[in-house]
């Protein structure tokens, strides 16, 4: 299974964007080696601003640059970007409606050993709640690269959640085109829909293969744009399959699962199970061990899917 770094993909895309457009500017808060903004900094030192360990000022400065026609990309770890500087993002970026791109690395518990203080499990919720803010969680490095090119063209504030760990490649066939606000069906199925984001897209595909062996046909959706969410695709999936599992490396409160439930409960209610982190913080450990510990593995998705099928008002197919 081929894996690739979302951070490297971001760094490469940023560098290429910098070559194409001199209005691209980049800010970082002392983590440019980790976030890979260093690649841009090396080639364009005059358009790169290391703000030191000062996330609030970084966001405000980015807002000022955007107010003057620049396209700022501001990067640091997800928890510091969205948590420490939340109110700056609210006031100076979202409320202002300014064209600032916040691209964070180190989303979720796969931050690993550094522990709960550094694991952003609330970032999607924190950004999703802000008016005007688009929220994107790429599923692999190929999608990350496309996301970065896309948001550079899009006018408005965006949050992109990346990761410390490398993700298995999902889109290796070269014909995928990321569209802001559109989920993508990566596997068709009729019995149940599993809507996933980020690393969980891969785990969901693994789960879907196993479910097929059990006679359950699962539709798998990569919902990389959490906001604005693809309502049509969610409702269509509910109509076709009658049950939905969501999977995310984030709290089940406020993230993808919540967003999907908001759509379904108002428009087409069906049984739902949200896979994610329960109401608690992360802890230290290796990423793989933590994914198992927090029940974010393919087998957890399989179990949830099977249980949920029992809740469906009528069975579409006999389960082996």
């Amino acid at each position: 299974m081929e894996k690739a770094s979302l951070r490297e993909a971001y760094g490469r895309a940023l560098l290429e964007l910098g070559r194409r457009n001199e209005n691209i500017v980049v800010l970082d808060a002392d983590l440019s080696g980790s976030t890979k903004t260093k690649m841009f900094a090396k080639e364009f030192p005059n358009r790169f601003f290391n703000m030191g360990v000062a996330e609030q000022d970084m966001i405000g400065t980015a807002a000022g640059l955007a107010a003057s026609g620049k396209i700022p990309f501001a990067s640091t770890f997800a928890i510091f970007a969205t948590g420490r500087a939340w109110e700056q993002i609210r006031q100076s970026v979202a409320y202002a409606g300014l064209n600032v791109k916040i691209v964070a690395s180190h989303g979720g518990i796969t931050v690993g050993d550094d522990g709960g203080s550094h694991q952003a499990i609330e970032d999607i919720a924190l950004m999703r709640i802000l008016p005007h803010m688009a929220v994107i969680v790429p599923a692999d490095a190929i999608e990350m690269e496309q996301v970065i090119y896309t948001i550079a063209e899009y006018e408005g504030p965006v949050y992109v959640r990346g990761s410390r760990v490398n993700f298995p490649i999902i889109y290796n066939n070269g014909d995928y085109h990321f569209q802001l606000g559109k989920g993508s069906i990566i596997r068709e199925g009729e019995d149940i829909t599993i809507i996933a984001t980020g690393l969980m897209v891969h785990h969901t595909l693994e789960a879907a293969k196993e479910l097929e062996n059990c006679g359950i046909s699962a539709r798998v959706i990569n919902m990389s744009t959490i906001k604005p969410i693809d309502k049509e695709l969610i409702i269509e999936s509910a109509k076709i399959t009658g049950a939905i599992v969501t999977a995310e490396e984030h709290l089940i409160i406020g993230g993808l699962g919540s967003a999907v439930c908001e759509v379904l409960s108002e428009s087409y209610p069906v049984p739902v199970k949200r896979i994610g982190i329960e109401d608690r913080f992360g802890i230290s450990g290796k990423p793989e061990a933590l994914l198992a510990y927090f029940h974010l593995m393919p087998e957890d998705i399989i179990e949830a899917a099977k249980r949920l099928l029992d809740c469906k008002p009528y069975r579409l197919r006999a389960i082996a």
């Binding site: 005059n46 609030q56 405000g60 807002a63 000022g64 107010a67 003057s68």
Partner: peptide, 14 residues
């Protein structure tokens, strides 16, 4: 002040 800094930096770049 952060925003003003950003505006000033953009003016300088341009």
């Amino acid at each position: 002040l952060s925003m003003a800094n950003g505006i000033a930096l953009a003016l300088r770049l341009d």
